[in-house]
Amino acid sequence: MYQVSNGIGFYVLATYFLAAIESKFLRAIPYEIELIPQEEYRSKFCYSVAECRASYPRAMDRGNDFFKYLLSRVVVSSVGGIPKYNVDEDTVIRYMWDVHQAAVDVGKSQLSDVSFYSSETERDFFMDFLLAVEFSVATLYRPYINSTAEFLVGFPHRPLTDQDRNVLASDVTVREKAFMSSVKFFSRTNEATGGLFLTVWKIAMTSEAGRAAGRFLIKRLLLIPSL
């Protein structure tokens, strides 16, 4: 699990970093950047602006949209040398999540095989979790430290085994069991409706009232019980 989540995380971080270079958001880099590859996974990732642009143009486009939006803003202050822009919070969060989801979609397409996971049960949970995140993204869930830590408080503390598929081991906490049941609810309901659940959810999240209700439901399903 941790190897694969790091792999998905690589796509997200690499997309942000390389798109920041390509969009000229990072202006003081006078040479070409290439990330150091892990040779055993060389074909699964991209390591430079040119490679990622050629292989995953949609993800790079979303990254460019995000940084070009920031470049279009005016710096109004600086905290510890970090500029603060006159951005609209919802707009910048929407751009940020668009990059995140595009990069996750790439990672899922490359790392869906069970051989990348500790077990089939682990792979299924991870895919359920990523779908639950997509539901959360539609609400413009705030990606701040406290809210992110709160969101992940029930995440399993260890990789799952196939013995956990039907009966979870005694070391899995009540909070973790509730979290896994919640992410499975999103996945199974969406599957049963042929993807209509997510489609209707995204439509409902186009209004501020809908997003507020959506964030409330996410908290109820994923963050309770809080033990």
Rank of each mutant, 00 (worst) to 15 (best):
L35Y: 08
Q38G: 02
E39V: 14
E40P: 00
Y41S: 10
Y41P: 00
R42L: 14
S43L: 03
K44V: 02
K44S: 12
K44Q: 11
K44P: 03
F45K: 11
F45G: 03
C46K: 04
Y47V: 02
S48Y: 10
S48M: 06
V49K: 09
A50M: 03
E51M: 14
E51G: 14
C52W: 05
R53N: 10
A54L: 07
A54Q: 15
Y56R: 04
R58S: 05
R58N: 12
R58V: 12
A59R: 11
M60H: 04
D61T: 10
R62T: 04
R62W: 00
G63R: 11
N64Q: 06
N64H: 10
F66S: 02
K68R: 15
L70V: 15
S72P: 01
S72L: 01
S72R: 13
R73G: 01
V74I: 11
V74N: 15
V74H: 11
V75A: 11
V75R: 08
S77D: 14
V79Y: 04
G80P: 03
G80L: 02
G81C: 14
I82Q: 07
P83I: 02
Y85H: 07
N86R: 10
D88V: 08
T91Q: 14
T91P: 09
V92T: 07
I93G: 05
Y95M: 04
M96V: 00
W97P: 05
W97E: 07
W97R: 06
V99R: 09
V99P: 02
Q101H: 12
A103C: 07
A103D: 10
G107C: 13
G107Y: 13
K108N: 09
K108F: 08
S109C: 09
S109K: 12
S109A: 15
Q110R: 15
Q110G: 04
Q110A: 11
L111Q: 01
S112P: 02
D113R: 06
D113G: 08
D113M: 00
D113A: 11
V114C: 06
S115E: 08
S115L: 04
S119H: 14
E120G: 14
E120H: 12
T121A: 07
T121W: 02
E122R: 04
F126S: 15
F126Q: 15
F126P: 01
M127A: 14
D128T: 06
F129S: 05
L130G: 08
A132G: 12
A132P: 01
V133I: 15
V133T: 12
V133S: 07
E134K: 15
F135A: 00
S136V: 11
S136K: 13
L140K: 06
L140F: 12
Y141C: 01
Y141G: 06
R142I: 12
R142V: 09
P143R: 05
Y144S: 15
I145M: 05
I145V: 09
S147H: 09
T148C: 06
A149T: 02
A149F: 03
A149W: 00
E150W: 13
E150C: 00
F151G: 11
L152C: 02
